[in-house]
Amino acid sequence: MKHKLISALLGMAFLGSAHGALCAEMPTLRYVQGGNSTSLSQLPITVAQMKGFYAREGLRVEFVTNDESNSAAAEEGYNPSIERGGPGDITTVSAGFFVHAVLNGSDAVAISAQTANPVYSLIVRPEIRTFDDLWGKEITLTAPWDTITITTRKLLASHGIGPSDFQFKRIRNSDARLECLQSGECAAITAGQPYDIQALNMGMGFHRLGTNYEAGPVIFNLEIVRRAWARDNGDILVRYLRAAANAMRFINDPNNRLEVMEIIRELTGEPQEIVNEIMAGYEDLTLRILPRQAELDMESFQHFLELLEEAGVSSEPLPRAEHFVDLTYAQAAGIR
């Protein structure tokens, strides 16, 4: 259960405090998490904390939360977690919101990838049998710049459904979009794991029409910092990235399969059969759900920028991927 996971983390905090002077000498990195602490996107940092990878690098990571809208802040050219008085030094953000913020003046820069290609499914009601049945129907996505929306639009376009061929409804989270599908208000939704699996198991005839993998490899969630902060705190950032890389290597190591599955179960609270399906996706290397060692694949990120241009969310041509990324710190941490 979740209380076991929390107890493990608290136990580690207690053991760390017992080291007194040693802990006091550790530099602290403030990591801003999203509002949903049970999301699968929290898996890498949960593993890093539980396995002591941060402490091994002589680093204390303080987790703080911030529920301000990345989408709204991007419109004004900043990330609310690390800029303009935000509570952290580093955070995770949807690639689309990050790009939008930088184009509007943000000083943020991407230094690693947290999630590359998570499973997002186009879940539809029983009466929707083919993509043609979606013409004129209400499809629930997220914000226009969000990676979820961009990749779903590409999926739809590849099956002949253009932006003007359906009614766009914006709902932020997968669980809320699932409620819309249940009510009958929405004909189709994009749902991430485990909500897509839950939908299929509801006994209401919901089924999967496609997945966002059809859009091609992208980078969904990036880890970002302020450029100025990175220049002044390079050593801390390299320590963090070494720990992040070790966490990813641990998750991707087949020898750790059972332990990782238990962490997923504790983190999400999902039953074993859903955990099994989630883990099967991670183990399928063709899906590229997680980076192998927190690396930011530049080709995938460039492909995402091309999808943004195809979606028409920007009135100007977008810069190349290198404009948004600084891999200096990852390379210093041994990430290739």
Rank of each mutant, 00 (worst) to 15 (best):
A101H: 02
L200I: 05
A73P: 06
Q302N: 15
N201S: 10
I236D: 03
A230H: 11
A332P: 03
S17R: 11
I219L: 13
L22T: 14
G205F: 08
D165I: 10
L222I: 05
R231M: 08
Q272R: 12
Q114I: 09
Q193Y: 03
M202K: 04
Q198P: 05
E83D: 11
M204Q: 09
A188S: 04
A199W: 05
D235F: 01
T65Y: 14
R172Q: 15
R153Y: 03
N201H: 07
P194R: 07
A101K: 00
A228E: 15
E299Q: 13
D133K: 06
T211C: 12
G160Y: 05
T286H: 09
L200V: 03
A110T: 05
V238D: 04
I224R: 06
A157W: 02
V47E: 10
S183K: 09
R249V: 01
G52A: 09
V119Y: 05
E310F: 13
N79F: 00
L200M: 07
A294M: 02
Q33W: 07
G77Y: 02
S158L: 15
R242N: 06
R288E: 06
E283H: 00
G58C: 08
Q302C: 02
A294F: 02
N256I: 13
G16K: 04
N221L: 14
H323T: 06
S158A: 14
K51Y: 07
F250M: 09
R170W: 14
P319D: 05
Y282T: 00
A333S: 12
I6W: 09
E127Y: 07
E309L: 03
L15Q: 15
T147D: 15
L134S: 00
R239V: 00
F97L: 08
N276C: 04
R257T: 02
S106F: 01
A74D: 12
F168A: 11
R153T: 02
V119H: 09
G184F: 03
F53K: 04
E68F: 08
V119G: 09
E223M: 15
G205H: 10
G203P: 08
E259H: 11
Q302L: 03
M202L: 14
S315T: 07
F168H: 12
R239M: 01
L134D: 07
A73W: 05
R249I: 00
I111V: 10
A191D: 13
P254Y: 11
Q49T: 12
H100A: 13
E57N: 09
E277H: 02
L155T: 02
Q198Y: 14
L200W: 00
G86H: 05
R177A: 05
